[in-house]
Design a binder for these strands. Sequence first.
RNA 1: GCGAGGGUGGCGGAACUGGUAGACGCACUAGACUUAGGAUCUAGCGGGUAACCGUGGGGGUUCGAUUCCCCCCUCUCGCACCA
Length: 830
Amino acid sequence: MTSNNTVSNKYDFKTIEKKWQQFWEDGEVYKVTEDAAGEKYYVLEMFPYPSGRIHMGHVRNYSIGDVVARYKRMRGYNVLHPMGWDAFGLPAENAALKNNSHPATWTYANIDYMRNQLRQLGLSYDWGREIATCNPKYYRWEQLLFIEMYRKGLVYQKVTTVNWCDSCQTVLANEQVIEGACWRCDQPVFPRKMNGWFFKITDYAEELLADLEKLTGWPDKVVTMQRNWIGKSTGLTCEFAVEGSAEKIAIFTTRPDTIFGVTFMSIAAEHPLLDPIIAGTATEHEVRDFARQIVIDKQRRSLDEEAEKVGIFTGRYAINPFNSERIPIYVANFVLMEYGTGAVMAVPAHDERDFEFARKYNLPITPVVIPEGMTLDPATMAQASTIPGVLAGSGQFTGMDSLAAQAAIIKQAEEKGFGSAHVTYRLRDWGISRQRYWGAPIPMVHCDTCGVQPVPEAELPVLLPEDTEAGSGCLPLHQRPSFIATTCPKCGGAAKRETDTMDTFMESSWYFARYTCPRNETSPLDKAKAAYWLPVDQYIGGVEHAILHLLYSRFFTKVLRDLGHLDIDEPFTNLLTQGMVIKDGAKMSKSKGNVVDPNDLIQEYGADTVRLFSLFAAPPERDLEWSAQGVEGSSRFLNRVYRLIATNRELFTCDPAMPAQLSEPGKTLHRKTHQTIKRVTESIEQNFHFNTAISGMMELFNVLASVAGENADEKAEPAVVREAVSILLLLVSPMVPHFAAEMWEYIGNSESLEKMPWPEFDAEAAREDLLTIVLQVNGKVRSRLQVPADIADDDLARLALADENTVKFIDGKPVKKTIVVKKKLVNIVV
RNA sequence: GCGAGGGUGGCGGAACUGGUAGACGCACUAGACUUAGGAUCUAGCGGGUAACCGUGGGGGUUCGAUUCCCCCCUCUCGCACCA
């Protein structure tokens, strides 16, 4: 390629960016295949929902990912870097209603617009692998996976109390409820009974928990959040007989050591044994009404407010199997039916909630675990005691250490047959049913004679109806008779299609795997290709997905493995959770009116400047405060580099061979160049701290300008300048790819920049031969000394003691000690 | 309440295993060039006249602490009656 540039002193980013985007696209420069040379590296950014236009959060996310991709390519890796669209979801329906169009129309138009925006950012994606999850060619495989999971017993239907968002008219997963409000529209969420489809994610609870250990490349914070979310508890389940009834009520406790301190039992208002045990008691109706009221109150209450503890005596007693003690059974509003067994043995002396309840209803408090050196008086205790101690009043276990007693008590329960060791998880099964239009239809059929049947694989995909019945593009499927009517795949009789669609978290739970073989027509995954590329080496996205998306993706990976589609246990080896982009200290939002539109910035400064600033202003994991003036600074930097190169073109036609002897400025620049390679490489390798990498490059440029620019006093040799500029361009190229490519060509390189390897660091060149040593007296900096780098400690100490300033501060006092730190300082203690 | 992560100039942020606190950038000040300059270049830029004081506050370890230990304050995020 010959340089056809005319010299211009103006950095014309518009022309430059367009030119290189075209060049990359025409040459399919970022297309990858499995057979290329080099070790594979899969870098992935969380794909966007096609909401209309990209925002600064996307710009930041994708800029970070692109630097990683470009850097790894220069390092010789065969890099997979794909992009796609998380394209199903409610906003499309809302928009379609508003514009009287169709969700598909709206979605695809958004995708086209946003794809163009991403192209303008110069992101190095293999666009040939683009996925839109609303495309039947994608969701047909998801439907197949659903059926495979169904056959494996990982899918079931049940009636449950679900989280219902009235404004979105849909069911939400627990994870989609944020402080009692819908994660999407922020409206209050209410419980409602509904039949729905569930994935048995709890079957994988133990593995999901255990494998967190393997995720050493994940932020601790995310691992901890997942661990807490799964919420494993070990303890005892134990059955309590009900006096005067054949029923037995099972409880779960993590504190079996306190079982002799049980003074009552609390059960959930929805407990299935409530009705049977109260039948025939004098207070039956009263209790039933009370329980009903608890359920109603719970529904009315938004999920984030905690109600005052209330309860009512059922009129029945349970028998503690350990000491045969008779304890009253209460219905209490704070007992959750969804967790454990829905019944709790109450030990007010050692549990805060039970204590509060016991005080309120005047129930006895019996301390049985006495912490060392303490006495617990039920009459005066102000709160429950939850620390370990020695057992008291606990029959044969009295005197035992409370931790040891836990095992001993479980053992006895097992021997006597009324209880056993038990593990409970906080994690619930994943409800995936959504009563919407714009989602992947669940591929099942309901037949009156054959029951529920999966759609035969040959008939997949179950397509979303595209017709607009009654003039609406987004009637939920259950309101579309022509969709519902079908025949039973088993008996051929009239049957009804399932009308629920799948939670959109389904699509995002396996898209990363589909990118390895996005056009595969015969199965969800091409095993060989998936095996080559997976797992994702570096995943990058917002921390808001720390639980939902990342947990579901881990679950799906294990399911795909067990279905034989994959051979890995975990999808993402390394995870980077980038911080938010904020403005004036707050998250950008329309309501606050502090939104910065990437389009405007790209128009005004160009993509490279925008990328550069978003990488420079903060390390990736921290929040980034957007600053219009800061953007100016980044723009200025690129302009300076441009001008230096444009006005010194003759330097780049020189002989690149280094002279044997360099002038002082030449040496300085040469040294700084190699020090910068080291620094930038380390900043990227260690923790992706591009902010410090960029400041390093700015320092290099400052030195460069001082020995090569128009204002340079003493000039460095052309070959040194040439080297410095070349290396600077290589180092910045992952951040500002158009700019670097243009300058690279401009200084006369015939091979395009994308093909160049990352520069090698020359330790010899980087070595300082003079060091500045700090001289301290009593730990305070008093002077500095220029010494040869290879000076001996003795000589250095001698020089330090002779230094004019140190002598002044030693002030004739006796020197007690002299500490010499190699290459750094000398501290004289007097 | 529980868990995690932060508090460094006017601002964003640097500082490797304890060793020059404030790199780099922004803002600001002065000067140069200029009809002009929100362009560009040069210089300065934590506080204090100074000795000195300075990394949220208070103790401690050390020749030496933003860094390690203890106590406290504060901010952000996550979970929140999970038995």
